[in-house]
Design a protein around this nucleic acid. Sequence first.
DNA 1: GTCTATACGCAGATAGAC
DNA 2: GTCTATCTGCGTATAGAC
Lengths: 222, 222
Amino acid sequence: MGRPRRPLLSRDRIVATALAVVDADGLDALSTRRLAAELGVSGPSLYNHVSTMEDLVDAVVDTILGEVDLSMFATPVADWRTALREWARSYRAALAEHPNIVPALAHGMGHRPNSLKIADAVFGCLVDAGWPRGQATRIGALMRYFVTGSALGSFARGFPDDASVYAGRYPHLSEAHLLAEHQREIDEGAFELGLESLLDGLAARTVTARGASGRAGGTPRW
Amino acid sequence: MGRPRRPLLSRDRIVATALAVVDADGLDALSTRRLAAELGVSGPSLYNHVSTMEDLVDAVVDTILGEVDLSMFATPVADWRTALREWARSYRAALAEHPNIVPALAHGMGHRPNSLKIADAVFGCLVDAGWPRGQATRIGALMRYFVTGSALGSFARGFPDDASVYAGRYPHLSEAHLLAEHQREIDEGAFELGLESLLDGLAARTVTARGASGRAGGTPRW
DNA sequence: GTCTATACGCAGATAGAC
DNA sequence: GTCTATCTGCGTATAGAC
């Protein structure tokens, strides 16, 4: 076959199909041959639209990052803590909907378009709330650390189903909370506890405008 | 050649050489053929000591986790905050010494021997300090989220060197702190700020034995 | 039980015809 | 822009020497 009148492929269609394959059968199942079969074309045709496999996976990750809700950063932001809390939950939820893609976060977190869009929105919100630019940058980074680390720790495979394997070997851990059935609640609880603790600890680094009651909405100190 | 008088290979030697290859040339450079060449044997010989490549990478990760300092959890622990702070820094430092292995953390975080040893030590410290078992489990998990997320976000490649690429495209971010040369300080600062904020936020969830001064060393509330 | 030699079936990627 | 044909290198299964 030669060149078709209308293109059979597009980058968007390839990325969308790749995401569907990853969601269905995992990252390992994503190959040029599988993808080509899924799209009804031959393998090398893909290279007219994506440069490498790594490029493609990056684009899939970026698509998912595009699903993170940023509407809470629409100015003016009433309370930076509330905005950050809602954003962090939305971020985690977007990753939870595509758990198979999470291991791909491990390569190059910084240079995808939607990564920058997210970083920009968080940074702007914090600066508007009165945080100095240096602190705003750090807070954006550390929140990302926590959310992505949470996704990685939660959606990767946890303890084996049979906790009795560890009986007696680790003095403190041979308990019910090792069981896989409890893992989801633990992950959820750990995320929420960490999120609230982070926000509390950051808020304590703000100056209070009028007495102790203003702590939660105070002006950043540095 | 047949069976040698003394074994040429051992699992430990294979794992150590694999770590050296990863440190030198990255995870992608680790292949059975490369590894066999380094060790002076033929490829399939490795399979007498490791079952799969995934098994081998897991063992390499476990070796690095074994370098995390746990001595601050030796009972009795004076202050759970101090212990957790020192442990988190040691954990991050161990990963920082082998940045190329960090992407491998993305697979199966929970079932390596040294993962369990670490989880057990943290859990024991927190329970000894008075935290209820459920909260201790959550805190151990969320601290791990933050430290591993920090390693992932820091040691993976950051923004491109030329910040002018983004000039005008992201309203808040076209600033000096986008430059790669500042990335290391940002990562370090974000880690420290997040760590202190987390510990402060958790400490605020304890009851104070004698007035407000006991906040840092208070007894956990739940 | 530990090694070597060989080989299979995948992978990502390229060259050149239409 | 898509095809066919083909390249290299991967993990690893198998068979056999000692």
